[in-house]
Each structure stands twice: as C-alpha cells, then as structure tokens.
Design a binder for these strands. Structure first.
Length: 376
DNA sequence: ACTTCCCGCCATTAT
DNA sequence: ATAATGGCGGGAAGT
C-alpha cells in the first residue's frame, strides 16, 4: 500500500532554493526575536513560527550562539542576548586567537586545479580549554571529545578567528577549509568542511558580519569580515551602505517574491491582524513557548504541493512523528488554518540596521544583564 | 561543468 | 525507551 491518489501534477517548479537558505532563515529568526521583551526562545516555537524543520533551527541557533546572540538555557530553551552581546563574544575570540598563535594562513593561492599540497604544517586552530560559555551544559563528561570538536559552533568560532587574525581580509572558503582542517588532506573531509562554511558564511552575511565578494585578481569568490565596524558609524543615516550585490539578504528579500507573478503561496497579506501583532504587539510568541500549541500545518488545501516550508510530513513515507496533540489534525487542516509558517517571511522589510545601533550603544554601557522573567 | 548548499537520514546524547 | 541534538554528505538548484 502506498500511493493511491497521487497526481503527478508536479508544478514545473515554483520551488526556489534561495528562499530557503539559512541566510534568509536567519534574517527571519532575528526579525522575530530581536525585539524588546524577548528573552526566551523555545525551539519548537521558533520552528513553527519560521516554518522550518527543527534541524534548521539547530543550525541557526548554534551559529548565533557562537557570537553570543544566544545562549542555551535548557532543553529546548535558549536565552536571547541580542546583538549587544556580539562585541564581547568577538573580543573573547580575539583573545583566544592570539593565544594559540599558530594560524597558518600563508598563501593558499592555488591556481589551476589540483594544485600543490605541500604544506601540511600547522595544526592550526584547535582550541580546547575554552573559557567561553559556548561549551555547554553540565558537562564534565570526558566523552564529549570528538563530537564537540566538530561542532558547527566551534567551527564557526574558528572561522571567525581565522578572519580576525589573518593579515588578509579576503578569504575564500577553500582556503578557510584548508586552514581549519589542519593537516587532513582528505578531499571528502574538505568538501564537507566547505559545505559547513557555506552555511556559516550565509548566516553571517545575512547579519552583515561578513560580506561576499570576488577577489580582485583571482576572481575567486571570497569573504571579507565586516564585524563590528561594518555598521555602526557608516555615516549615512538610515539604510546600510552595503550595495546589495546580487545576493543580499535582509532588505532585498522583499523583491525576491516580487519576481513574476505565479508565486502561489499567498504572501500578499497573510492576515492583517497577524501583521499587527508581529509589528507592535508585544511579542506574543515569547510566552507561547510553553504550550507551543501551534498546530502542524498542512497548508495545502489542495492536493499535494508543498508550498513553502511545510515540513512535518504528517504521514509521508517516513515514519511520521506523532505529535502529542494530534487530535485535531484533520480538523484544523481544513477548518482552522492560520498562518504560522511563513509569516515571518513576509515581514522582510524590517531593517535590522537599527538593531545594530541599539546594541552598540548598550555595549558602551556594559550593563550587567538582569534577569527578568516576564510573567507567563 | 563547477559552485553553492538544502534536505533529511541516522548516529549521538540527553531525559 | 523516547526525545533532543546535530554530524554529514547526496545530489539538485544556481551560475
């Protein structure tokens, strides 16, 4: 038994990979939580609000935690620290970077194809005794070794260290991967490492911490670390100075959907009330963390066609994970069908620029964070 | 063809 | 055992 009523009416493909990039997801994530009042983030809630699978949230969260924007509080719970925490995190990384001096970032200028692999010198970055809080919860288990060493979080920090301690400010991901890999000359490992770096680079680009550009001479795609100064005093009042090249997240995404016409998912207005809530309603979402009663949503009211991020296969080929509250699936599938998923996506026009101003100002204050639990 | 990198299988680790 | 995390790399979209 299997497919019964499946119409192969595969729409040519209205699917756009770019709309689902980690960069866009990160922008949405930030837009969703970077508001006053937010101080706790529930992963379930985040996944629902953003309309993505859990796995993706882990990616975002791990990277953001690497720069201090978030910290793990407990299972399924993260504490929002905000952009203002970035300076300190970066400072820590800088110190660590100078501590372990060997950052062999010599010339990895490979021209041609295979190129030379004569180096193999320099264990590069392999920090261990991190005073940083990134490491995690209760630990003390000696077993954590290997797994954590390959974590996205650590890779992210090392990636940053590479930039801030390198003489060159333009680094290609290949170079970075080589440096970060130490001496392992394994093509497979290399490819995987590069994949991860792309992930990281994309979210940092969306935060304007990094900028993608082609290297003047070699023409190879590279990244430049913008870090803090990338924004704060960029003269011009509003609007960032960044000239959206081709792939800039944040503000641009708006035009993204404006592409042609057939963009099914009603992105037009997804409920005016929701917009209102999102804009100035005091983050209602924050308190929802507990119940997370957002129903898993089968957005398609028609036959089969994923719209935009509707994962959560209710009964697909894979073993469906049944939700504890799977009572009204059918019910809400038709009768009740709010707009949780890409709601944030529509909120694209919010510029995060102001956020930068905020945290920068507060950074000067260096105010000790006070834990204030809003009444739930 | 090559580059970028989303998706989700499934190993690990926490409960 | 189940749930939460998160490596990892196949392979498809994008250039």
């Amino acid at each position: 038994m299997a497919s019964l009523h499946d119409s192969e009416t595969k729409v040519p493909s209205l699917y756009s990979r770019k709309e689902k990039s980690l960069g866009v997801l990160c922008s949405n994530f930030l837009r969703l939580y970077n508001r006053e009042g937010v101080e706790s983030i529930g992963l379930d809630n985040a996944a629902n609000q953003l309309g993505v699978e859990r796995r993706r949230i882990y990616d975002i969260v791990n990277i953001l935690e690497s720069v201090g924007v978030l910290t793990r509080k407990a299972k399924n719970q993260y504490t929002w620290k905000g952009f203002k925490a970035i300076p300190h995190a970066l400072e820590e990384l800088r110190k660590q970077a100078s501590t372990n001096d060997n950052l062999k970032m010599s010339q990895y200028c490979n021209f041609g194809t295979v190129a030379n692999e004569n180096d193999s010198r320099g264990p590069s970055i392999s920090n261990n005794s991190n005073t940083d809080s990134l490491t995690k919860t209760s630990g003390s288990h000696k077993s954590d070794t290997n797994r954590k060493e390959k974590s996205l979080g650590l890779l992210t920090q090392n990636f940053i260290k590479l930039f801030i301690s390198s003489k060159e400010d333009l680094i290609s991901l290949d170079s970075a991967a080589t440096a970060l890999l130490g001496d392992v000359h394994d093509p497979t490992a290399m490819r995987t490492k590069v994949r991860r770096l792309y992930d990281i680079a994309n979210v940092f680009s969306s935060m304007n911490l990094l900028e993608k550009m082609r290297h003047p001479e070699s023409g190879k795609p590279s990244f430049r670390w913008l870090g803090l100064k990338g924004h704060q005093k960029t003269e011009c009042t509003t609007l960032d100075t960044n000239s959206s090249k081709r792939r800039a997240f944040g503000t641009d995404i708006t035009n993204n959907d404006n592409n042609d016409d057939s963009k099914r998912y009603r992105m037009s207005e997804w409920s005016s009330k929701e917009v209102t809530v999102a804009i100035h309603g005091n983050v209602d979402i924050v308190k929802v963390e507990s119940d997370e009663n957002l129903p898993p949503p089968p957005p398609q009211r028609n036959s089969k066609e994923f719209v935009f991020g509707p994962f959560r296969p209710v009964g697909g080929a894979s073993g469906s994970k049944k939700s504890k509250q799977g009572q009204d699936w059918e019910n809400l599938a038709d009768t009740y069908r709010p707009q949780y998923r890409n709601k944030a996506i529509n909120d694209l026009f919010g510029h995060y620029v102001e956020a930068w101003k905020s945290w920068y100002v507060e950074a000067a204050e260096k105010k000790h964070d006070h834990v204030q639990q809003t009444v739930s």
